[in-house]
Design a protein around this nucleic acid. Structure first.
Lengths: 191, 191
DNA sequence: CTGTGTGAAGGCTTTCACAGCC
DNA sequence: GGCTGTGAAAGCCTTCACACAG
């Protein structure tokens, strides 16, 4: 998050920025931001703030955000299709290069400019294209079995949109995005 | 999350469940689950576990999940369109009843069965339909101004898909879903 | 004997407050 | 004078471990 903000400031030709400003942009307290940054190194200058250019470079190095990462998507339903078309996640950095679905009748060349392939081709595809990241948008009922296939194919990290907690080996990372729970959570605050 | 699991067990005609099983499903430790539940009340029976039916009822009461909540969506781009069509978030509980966009040329009746309206109609629509929840899927550059409009219209909670931290009065709740950051985060764990 | 409810301990994160450097 | 870097304090969340109820 900090990196994205600094990137934006850099593009906007801002030269120097204080922890107060950065923190406001990020929605955290200045002390929080300073503590977070110092876990990664000492990037600021006392009395002055942070040089945007150097901060951007150093954060980029830490999060290894340099090269393009191919991503596959599993589950070409409504949400899956949406995400394929959206593809607004940091275009230079990530790209969905293929989608998979058990339903073979979807046909190979989607209307989306990327191949839509049957699941049984997943393993060879992942190996061939060195894919390490997957987005999982299948219904809850088939999420675990799809996750197993991903793990078997050698995927190392899964962004899980299904509503179940995936059981995976601990060398595989999972992040969950659950829209129903986000809304539920919000509705708790409604008067 | 617990509620969704219990709901599923109930539909599957499971009678009783232990904290160990529930915790596994939720991806947390049993002690964690028990502690969480006791914040809301004492729902279990020692030596036995939790009665699924009564737990479901009591959780429903606590999170007031009873009645349907209308939701509006602002920003009919790729992601917005996707979410309108998806609508897989707990269908009985939430529904997107209208979408808004500054671009009036989108026309009033979308291809999606809900009205697509220009932003200036937002305030009256929200008042008329007692809408309290909004999903925000506009580009980062216009996110804050759209959020201001939502707040002005009387919206009480915002699910924010844009990449900026929204500044809102503290009687308005915001939850953020940032796909780029989720992927970024995951890619940190890739070898 | 099983499995919840719960104080207490442990671990982690956030915030404070100020020394230190520009 | 201004703003970072950082120990120390405070606050919060998770886990342990066991009393207790069925």
């Amino acid at each position: 998050m900090y990196f994205r903000i600094v990137e934006r400031l850099f593009k906007g030709r801002i030269d120097t920025v204080s922890s107060a400003v950065l923190a406001k942009e990020a929605g955290v307290k200045p002390s929080q931001l300073r503590k977070d940054l110092t876990y990664l190194g000492q990037f600021g200058t006392r009395g002055l703030g942070y040089k945007v250019e150097s901060l951007e470079k150093q954060l980029a190095r830490v999060i290894r955000t340099a090269r393009f990462r191919p991503v596959i998507l599993v589950g070409v339903g409504n949400l899956g299709t949406a995400l394929i078309q959206y593809d607004g996640f940091a275009k230079e950095e990530f790209g969905i290069i293929a989608a998979f679905d058990i339903r073979e009748e979807l046909g190979r060349e989607g209307r989306f400019g990327i191949p839509i392939l049957p699941n049984y081709l997943m393993k060879s595809f992942v190996a061939e294209h060195s894919v390490k990241l997957a987005i999982l948008t299948v219904p809850g009922t088939s999420a675990q079995s799809a996750a197993n296939e991903l793990v078997d194919a050698g995927i190392q990290a899964i962004l899980n949109f299904s509503t179940v907690a995936l059981q995976v080996p601990n060398n595989v990372a999972v992040n969950n995005v659950n829209l129903a729970i986000e809304l539920e959570n919000l509705s708790y605050f409604i008067k």
